[in-house]
């Protein structure tokens, strides 16, 4: 229940091979390119500042981009780097996340000549809601329904 409450999940089918999708997550020039495009799609400037990647287990990454309110920072540590199958990293946006960071797992499966990718972002509010119980309000039920249907 807790995992469901604090978890976001998305999937996507790619024409590109698993290895190419995998490398897009770890090569700084590629990261800079697609992250800028994704951010623009989200309605912010997409002007990337720092894109630093130490692509080994235990290595850290740091991404930042310019927003109206200033530099938005995202950082974390790689926990799994299994080319071209799986990437897992902690993901933090706030120093308070350090105690119990959220975790992003990217699973890349072969699909014909392309690939099928699943991203699970777990423990989004880990440090706050790890023990939140479900069922006491329709709103929490609605969150659950939204995540299941996504």
């Amino acid at each position: 229940m807790t995992e469901t409450l604090a978890t976001a999940k998305v999937t996507h089918r790619f024409a590109a091979s698993p290895a190419r999708v995998y490398d897009a997550w770890l090569e700084p020039a590629k990261l800079r390119s697609w992250m800028s495009a994704a951010l623009k799609n989200m309605g912010v400037s997409g002007e990337m500042m720092r894109v630093e990647v130490d692509a080994r287990v235990g290595g850290k990454f740091f991404f930042s981009d310019m927003r109206e309110a200033g530099e938005a920072k995202h950082w974390g540590t790689y926990r799994v780097l299994d080319r071209p199958h799986k990437i897992e990293f902690t993901w933090m946006v706030d120093a308070r996340d350090e105690n119990d960071p959220s975790v992003v797992t990217i699973t890349i499966e072969p699909d014909g000549t392309g690939s099928f990718v699943t991203i699970v972002h777990a423990k989004i509010f880990a440090s706050y809601v790890e023990k939140v119980e479900m069922g006491w309000s329709n709103m929490l039920g609605a969150i659950d329904a939204m995540l299941v249907s996504a």
Binding site: H12, F14, A15, R20, A24, K30, W34, N41, I119
Partner: peptide, 12 residues
């Protein structure tokens, strides 16, 4: 994350 996957797809 959905926007990220779309952007990677577009780039590739």
């Amino acid at each position: 994350w959905a926007a990220s996957l779309k952007a990677i797809d577009d780039m590739l």
